[in-house]
Design a protein around this nucleic acid. Structure first.
Lengths: 173, 173
DNA sequence: TTGTAATCTAATTGG
DNA sequence: CCAATTAGATTACT
């Protein structure tokens, strides 16, 4: 048992570098320790404050002492401090996933068809109507736009690919 | 072209305000004719692969509604019928399950011990080394982290339970 | 049946 | 706001 991810809280893990084939895990020994961060605002962690009436599940948002993960080993492409922040985030907690009802989704979708960049006023109205925080609605639209964009990109790709293969087939004949 | 977002780029869709109120949309019961074909990117379904039984789908791959509903229903009612599930699965198309070799798994596990959040570079290297798509590697780590979390949660639960029963036993004596 | 690869999407973070 | 990513929940395959 026990969280294999815990590399070691204090200092860099005493890794047996020669053992792991992947070329010592890519020279990840950037010990770049970073310091602590400002406190994050997470009202849903302390006290209840659950104004998410439609959160049927969220079986357990435990965050109970989720460990600090292998922080020093990240060697991320860009942000050095990200892992620490993430580790910290696990302690502090993450907003429990909201589960929208199908009715709510339907309405959101309908609005999305008409305007996928609803202003604050529309969002506020929706929030009131659907009993969802305006925050969540904004996030929903954000994610929805991302989804749409993704789909569009992918269909474009398929189209190009199809044209290409069609051409190739014609050649073979 | 293609963009379904009406009134998008201006921050304020001024003109539409009066026409498309939320009430209006709520009562929107028309044919709805939504044109968001959810083009999921499934390159393994087209092409002349052996398992292209899912060739006919083309239209209405819109699972966004269906899926959500079924998820909700499961909380309160019996799971959808087997036939329904099968039918759904038939045309949804899903990447064939990848089977990793034991060697691949071993290496992945080793890396996971050291860093369970490998950045893009590490993943890319792994992909190259193990001859697996980087995508699959990312998914693997995702699932691996979920597994770890799950097991941690379970052990915590058992611990609490044990303490509880111990207390109870002591009382009974 | 179990374990886990795959999927979908809400939430987070940084830019 | 977007882009990339993670977590959480679930589906489905071996």
């Amino acid at each position: 048992m026990a969280s294999l991810c815990v590399g070691g809280h204090e200092n860099r893990p005493v890794v047996l570098r020669s053992v792991f084939t992947i070329d010592r895990i890519l020279g990840l020994d950037g010990p770049d320790q970073r310091t602590v961060f400002s406190k994050l605002f997470r009202p849903w962690t302390d006290s209840d404050s659950a104004q998410n009436q439609n959160r049927f599940m969220s079986a357990s948002n435990d965050n109970t002492g989720e460990k600090k993960v292998s922080q020093e080993n990240q060697k991320y492409s860009k942000p050095p401090s990200e892992t620490y922040r993430r580790a910290l985030n696990w302690y502090i907690g993450r907003r429990p996933r909201t589960a929208f009802s199908s009715v709510q989704i339907e309405i959101l979708e309908n609005v999305f068809q008409i305007n996928c960049y609803p202003g604050i006023d529309v969002r506020e109205q929706l929030a009131q109507r659907l009993h969802i925080d305006e925050d969540r609605i904004q996030i929903w639209f954000q994610n929805r736009r991302a989804k749409q964009k993704r789909s569009h990109r992918e269909s474009q790709f398929l189209l190009v690919k199809k044209v290409f293969t069609d051409l190739q087939e014609r050649k073979e004949q």
